[in-house]
């Protein structure tokens, strides 16, 4: 994998460094990046780590009740882009985002905007399952507790059960809710993290390669879950696996070295890519 990436770096090195020197310049995106009923609207988003630009002028919408997948080779900036959608990049020193990202028409990088309620509306599931070192129950109850979403224990119990049900984990853990979440298997841990996220009832869920640490069976379960969650949430998922993108998403965006190269209907992208780079990637020439 790494050697492949190096090969790409070599092949495209001259071009990308010229681009870097140019700063704002970005490649035009092939395809229609808007959604019919958009929940999040991103226009000309640049992301900088210090003086290094990681994302070049990306424009992309995330529609209601749809799954948008983002694919591309390692280091193409898809995770960086995802993390900028709920300002998780704030925790990284020297990270800067310009351009416009709106959630329901509200600019999320506005000076006055508070990331805390934003993140309650835009949840995130990470690459490696990261349950808190608490019981299963407390892991799910954490979000509702800090936000004060329930008024009493019974409501909280109900919310926890409901979230675990939605995450498809209830039957496996209902008898051991008081045991530590870290004791579950990898796939269960990831579903616990998803349950933890949906317990807050966010509007958008961001998933950063949620299955890369899981075995195929666990992956299948989580993919099924993502499809179900689409009924209630908008989902943006970063994935390494093109098959996964094809299985779970309605629209797919292909990133390459910080540029959004092509975006469109998933079946369209995989059967009939317009851009040379997209075609090379999905036909397995690199990545």
């Amino acid at each position: 994998m790494n050697t492949m990436v190096e090969a790409i770096d070599k092949a495209t090195g001259a071009m990308s460094s010229a681009e870097l020197a140019g700063g704002q310049h970005s490649r035009a995106t092939v395809g229609d990046f808007t959604a019919v009923d958009p929940r999040m609207v991103c226009r000309n988003v640049d992301v900088w780590y210090g003086s290094k630009q990681a994302i070049h002028g990306v424009s992309l919408d995330i529609g209601k009740n749809e799954v948008v997948s983002m694919i591309g080779p390692s280091g193409c900036g898809k995770s960086t882009f995802l993390r900028s959608l709920n300002r998780m990049n704030d925790t990284i020193v020297g990270c800067r985002v310009t351009g416009s990202i709106q959630l329901d028409g509200q600019e999320i990088y506005d000076k006055g905007l508070d990331p805390v309620p934003l993140r309650a509306r835009v949840g995130m599931v990470f690459q490696k399952p990261n349950p808190f070192p608490k019981s299963i129950y407390e892991n799910v109850a954490y979000g509702p507790r800090i936000h004060g979403l329930t008024n009493n224990k019974a409501e909280l119990d109900e919310l926890v059960e409901d979230s675990l049900q939605k995450a498809g984990l209830w039957n496996e853990v209902k008898d051991r809710l008081d045991q530590p979440g870290t004791g579950l298997s990898g796939g269960q841990q990831q579903r616990l993290c998803i349950a933890r996220t949906i317990a807050v009832s966010p509007e958008v869920i961001l998933m950063d390669e949620p299955c890369s640490a899981l075995d195929p069976i666990a992956t299948a379960i989580v993919e099924e879950l993502i499809d179900e969650l689409r009924q209630n949430f908008s989902i943006a998922i970063v994935t390494h696996s093109m098959q996964q993108a094809a299985r779970v998403s309605q629209r797919t965006a292909y990133f390459h070295l910080g540029d959004l190269i092509e975006v469109g209907e998933t079946n369209h992208i995989f059967t009939n890519p317009q851009h040379k780079l997209t075609e090379d990637y999905i036909t397995g020439r690199f990545g």
Binding site: A120, G148, E158, S201
Partner: peptide, 27 residues
């Protein structure tokens, strides 16, 4: 949509964000 699972029956459904905003000052 996105209603909280646990809202009193009959009451109008409340969005998460409203509850969050209410308690934000205290937090």
């Amino acid at each position: 949509m996105n209603n909280l699972a646990a809202t009193a029956p009959g009451a109008p459904p409340r969005r998460t964000i409203d509850i969050v905003n209410e308690s934000l000052k205290r937090r």
